[in-house]
Design a protein around this nucleic acid. Structure first.
Length: 490
RNA sequence: GGCGCGUUGGCGGAGCAGUUACGCAGCGGUCUGCAAAACCGCGUAGACGGGUGCAACUCCCGUACGUGCCUCCA
């Protein structure tokens, strides 16, 4: 069974096959670092992290780039309004550079707490200004640009396939119906490659516009014209400079199909005459309380909000994995509780491995057939589920099935190594930290459990209950099963 | 106005043309010193109306409702 993924470019489920045998180049549109990401943003990054995990698990050598948009993303994608970074700076009384640094640090720490694998390259747009200017240069040379009073624009009429990717009928789009149109643009969907700093203004982030990309003669050029890159440009420039002209997989949110990715394709392919990406994957949006996440509705919960409600980042991760990336999830705190409980149950199963080990006296005397073995076929089945367009809910259900058998049987009969293999594979593929979140209990707690068993044998219930309370204070819960006591963490 | 998507049991959420998804929550029972767990069972899901099939939650058409994009947003 091959790895299949849904390619937005073809609108079909396709068998994945990278250009180079066992290497995969992967580009993910990263955050605009002007504010805390909300859980919808994180959902996207959790899904793409799962993709990376699946590829690595399948033996691919993955080189992944994620950009950090720290300049040029305007309040409106239609090349109007203020730069988000500059706006954030004004809001917080800092410079745009300080804003970017702060939210980049926050993003990295969020990635860590959600156990997202760090991409090989986390690239700041402002670190790639020369590459972006070079791309403009190439496009200008090819006749794809024009200049108007506020910047240099991409002429979409020169790229005949412009509307193919999003399958939009541009004529029927009511572009600018609700925003003031830039009347100088030749077409509403032409987009800025480089914007000039407003005359008489000084931006925190601005660069001198090289004269050779300007449509003026050198003798007319007196004072430097300052400017900054358009939002779409960075992704093409960063991706191509780090991964080459054609990349295997490009991922991003579903909202990026009609504008951002359409524009990336237009400018990249106009410059190189080669396909920009073979596979385009898009995650659907997470709804919150059945409505969309929107800054204006104020429902964009952050990771900090989740934690202040008493949930862990892994609870959120479990919640996100419970629905498939192409479907529209719905977040409520009740649903998060369900995910938390499920994860907690898994952690209790994971903790059994310490208790099997403790009792392991004559492991060799029992054959695998006599033991409860989590078969390697289970791990294969998990992988197969994920290979089916990252069907994470299916993968979770397979793990549920495998784990739920464990508590019915005598612990002595469970194969320690096969349980460990399952947990390792689950962690590798889903990143839920089942192993690291369930360390063994200390010797003191173990002694208390033994003493409690003695008390129970002597039918000394008050003593037994006292010991149980003592363990509870150490966050260890003891349950008396028909096969003896089993502990778990509270 | 244009283009698109969705509608599964209390909630979340998959696959599949014919066999229990799965999870969380709930109810009843067994077991049990108590508690918890575990186990067994229960609630008879598939918006509505047609159509094609021996057979449809699963394919096709229509209707209703919801929702997304064409501003911002993963």
């Amino acid at each position: 069974m091959p790895l299949r993924i849904y390619n937005t470019a073809s609108r079909k489920l396709e068998i994945f096959s990278p250009a180079t045998d066992k290497s995969v180049s992967l580009y993910t549109c990263g955050p605009t670092v002007y504010d805390y990401p909300h859980i919808g943003n994180w959902a996207s990054f959790i899904y793409w992290d799962t993709l990376v995990r699946v590829l690595k698990f399948s033996g691919y050598n993955v080189t992944r780039v994620m950009n950090l948009t720290d300049v040029g993303h305007l309040v409106s994608d239609a090349d109007d309004g203020e730069d988000k970074l500059e706006k954030g700076a004004r809001r917080e009384g800092k410079s745009a550079w300080e804003i970017a640094d702060f939210y980049i640090a926050d993003f990295k720490s969020g990635m860590k707490s959600l156990n997202l694998i760090q991409p090989e390259y986390l690239a700041r747009a402002t670190d790639y200004i020369p590459q972006q200017l070079e791309l403009i240069r190439q496009l200008k040379a090819g006749g794809y640009t024009y200049q108007i009073s506020d910047g240099i624009y991409f002429d979409t009429s020169k790229f005949s396939r412009y509307s193919d990717f999003a399958r939009l009928d541009l004529k029927s789009q009511k572009a600018g119906a609700r925003v003031k149109l830039n009347t100088e643009k030749h077409r509403p969907w032409d987009f800025a490659l480089w914007k000039f700093t407003e005359p008489g203004k000084k931006r925190d982030m601005e660069w001198e516009t090289p004269i050779d990309i300007l449509a003026i003669k050198p003798e007319q050029y007196s004072n430097p014209i300052m400017g900054f890159p358009g939002w779409h440009l960075e992704c093409s420039a960063i991706a191509m400079s780090l991964l080459g002209k054609t990349i295997d997989i490009h991922t991003g949110g579903i909202d990026h199909i009609p504008i951002h990715h359409t524009n990336e394709i237009a400018q990249s392919e106009s410059a190189t005459k080669q396909p920009f990406a073979h596979y385009w994957l898009h995650n659907n949006h997470l709804k919150i309380n059945n409505s969309k996440v929107s800054k204006s509705l104020g429902n964009g919960y952050t990771l900090q909000d989740i934690e202040s409600h008493g949930f862990s980042p892994m609870d959120l991760r479990m919640f996100i994995l419970q629905s498939q990336y192409t479907s529209e999830g719905n977040f409520t705190f009740d649903n998060l509780v369900a995910a938390k409980n499920r994860l907690n149950n898994w952690q209790n199963y994971a903790a059994l491995r310490h208790q099997i080990h403790d009792r392991l006296t004559d492991d060799a005397s029992k054959t695998d057939l006599e033991k409860f073995v989590v078969s390697t076929a289970t791990i294969g089945a998990i992988r197969d589920a994920l290979w089916q367009n990252l069907n994470t809910p299916k993968a979770l259900s397979i793990i549920d099935d495998a784990l739920s058998g464990l508590e019915e049987v005598d612990l002595d009969t469970i194969s320690w190594s096969s349980l460990n293999q399952l947990l390792e594979a689950a962690d590798e593929l889903l990143g839920l930290q089942l192993l690291s979140s369930t360390p063994d209990i200390d010797d003191e707690a173990k002694q208390l459990i033994i003493r409690r068993e003695r008390a129970r044998e002597a039918k000394d219930w008050p003593q037994s209950d006292t010991l149980r309370d003592q363990l509870l204070k150490m966050n260890v819960v003891v349950k008396d099963t028909s096969h003896g006591p089993v502990w778990s963490r509270q």
